[in-house]
Write a protein that binds this DNA or RNA. Sequence first.
DNA 1: CGCTTTTTTGCAAGCGTGTGCAAAAGTTTC
DNA 2: GAAACTTTTGCACACGCTTGCAAAAAAGCG
Lengths: 379, 379
Amino acid sequence: MCKSFTRYVSLSSGLLRSFNKISGLVVAVARKRVQDTVNNYGFMQLNKSFVSADDVAKRAGVSRSAVSRTFTPGASVSEETRQRVMEAAQALGYHVNQLARGLMRSESGIVCLVVSEMDTPYRARLVRALTHELQTAGKIAMLINTDRSDGSVDAALRQTLHYRADASILLSGLPDKAITRLCLNSGQRIVLINRDDDIDGPFRINLDDGQAARVAVSAFLRAGCRHLAFANSDVGTPSLMARERGFIAAAAEFGLEVTVVRHGNTVYESGRKIAQTLFTEPKRPDAVFCVNDLMAFGLMDGARYDFGLNIPEDLCIVGFDDIEQSSWTSYNLTTFSQPVDEIVKSSVAWLQSDATAGRVRSANLHAPLIWRKTIRNKL
Amino acid sequence: MCKSFTRYVSLSSGLLRSFNKISGLVVAVARKRVQDTVNNYGFMQLNKSFVSADDVAKRAGVSRSAVSRTFTPGASVSEETRQRVMEAAQALGYHVNQLARGLMRSESGIVCLVVSEMDTPYRARLVRALTHELQTAGKIAMLINTDRSDGSVDAALRQTLHYRADASILLSGLPDKAITRLCLNSGQRIVLINRDDDIDGPFRINLDDGQAARVAVSAFLRAGCRHLAFANSDVGTPSLMARERGFIAAAAEFGLEVTVVRHGNTVYESGRKIAQTLFTEPKRPDAVFCVNDLMAFGLMDGARYDFGLNIPEDLCIVGFDDIEQSSWTSYNLTTFSQPVDEIVKSSVAWLQSDATAGRVRSANLHAPLIWRKTIRNKL
DNA sequence: CGCTTTTTTGCAAGCGTGTGCAAAAGTTTC
DNA sequence: GAAACTTTTGCACACGCTTGCAAAAAAGCG
């Protein structure tokens, strides 16, 4: 029986509602397929009834294989049948069921993005760019929020397995090695962005934090700064710690010590708090490298409004990420730019690379310093 | 043949690589199932080989149905078999294939979020909150980026159909009615957040923009402002236009005219630009309602740094959205708060509501004014 | 213990697709 | 026009799961 385009259930006088009250068995049976008839009650839409390839085949007068082949690039179909199939599909509003296709091809087209606090400017930008790039690569992004603390990265990767994702991209947290291995063994590909992990198999993208730290130190020195400080969170992510270590090491090369303050999360308020402790100290720093732009903003506001300091005259600041707000006139922050485009491109390229080929393991990207107004030119 | 826990392919001396070169047919056959053997070459992972319910059943010595029932809440399984199944599943790393389950249940558990420019603070917050809420409701979010201009909202909804999403939530753009209807007819539920549409079927969430505009006017009046202006983008989204109309109307009630400036997108730079045109005019406004916090920031920076105006002494400003940056000391923006939590809760609640019940059509939410420092207390 | 009632279990059909295989149809060649 | 080839087509099985149905096992009962 050919199902037509508009699908309404014809159930006179509210019979549909009573379906809910009777046993689950009957509901289940009734749910399956309902033939079309003219609706004389209330134009109630039928719950769940996508049009299938069978419907299209019937309407076009061909076999179901023909329909499948029409929508499979490179398959053998004559131009004539393709036309007829397309026409019928159009009329019926047919869309290939990717779930079923994924089942057959064992390739769902789904890529999971695992991320927490995704409303953070840098993360949001990354997610946006990733989804876009994935889409143009013919994949689709599934977003898994790991805001909850209870081992949720592991739970996220489990979700990833449930949906037979082709790959997972981790922007936050670090999963248990056992789970990672499980994913890898299931044929999933894993990309780790800015998280360090010694497990073999995932593609790791990292920034050259040490180099950036060195650049920061020399920029401060050229500006005549002598009392360096480093504002960090106590999140302790490897990349954040790498910046800290790198900064301390680079400063040491010039015989300078660094005052390190760690507080809270990598957010505005933490920067604000750090300003409090940093500028009430006896030897006030004249240069601060903030692990993060958000913290830099907090620090700047603290310095300006709580201590009346002028930036960059009294105080030079460098941030990291180059989020949009950094270019706003109120901040005009000199900061290291996350190479979001490169990160995204190399991730997706790796996902599409041949699995059996000698696989690249990691990428090390450079974060250039964007000069604005928070470091003075000369002493 | 029972597949064991660790799955490595044993192919001595690089045979695997040569697979690529031979005909597609052989590859396809080889891809299917490969028996386990000890790997004596290089620990190459087998591409794509999730463990299935069959494997678990075999290991646990029960039927496949038993496995299925173990993972189906409310199904009838004895405690003993459940134990054995769980144990086997654990050992094998089994995860129910949601794609296949969705195929049977015709309920994928997928909810699509259709959004453009998702790195905008307000949108990012909404996406974060939505994904979180959906996850706790047992759904999973699929993110569809509609940044490209070419009718991409329609394309997005097509994707939605491809993946048999249970529902779509539109945060950006507005789809063609035909597509919307197609989705609805396929049994999909649609939520429109802050986009107006006269089509019947979707759940529409809107803010009371008119009321907010009235509040803004009276706040300005109480502060002694007399020259009101409205800073808008020329995006022309219904909700943005509603704010504009509401503001003009409310001002008119007090016999005041409003200078309206529209420019570009709803971003910082546009606010900056608008400041240029607004403050070079002969009769400079002393109060500006910005359609958006981002534009408000741009306007504030323009007013302060290009024109040396003091806020709120010379100029009062109100924004809309209450994004995180609004509370930063540099801005301290008095603004209307998007009730993100309410939006999210009501959306997800509606998605879970009974389809056959008398369905609610829309929600009208209130955006309260958050008082900070950009409106002076008294004249 | 035998009977009835309840719970558990396996079988098999089906969800919507892709695809190898062989048959059918079309095309070229002599 | 027949033989040799190529392209197109339909059949049927597979993917991994859910679930109605009936048979089997367990439990309750007099």
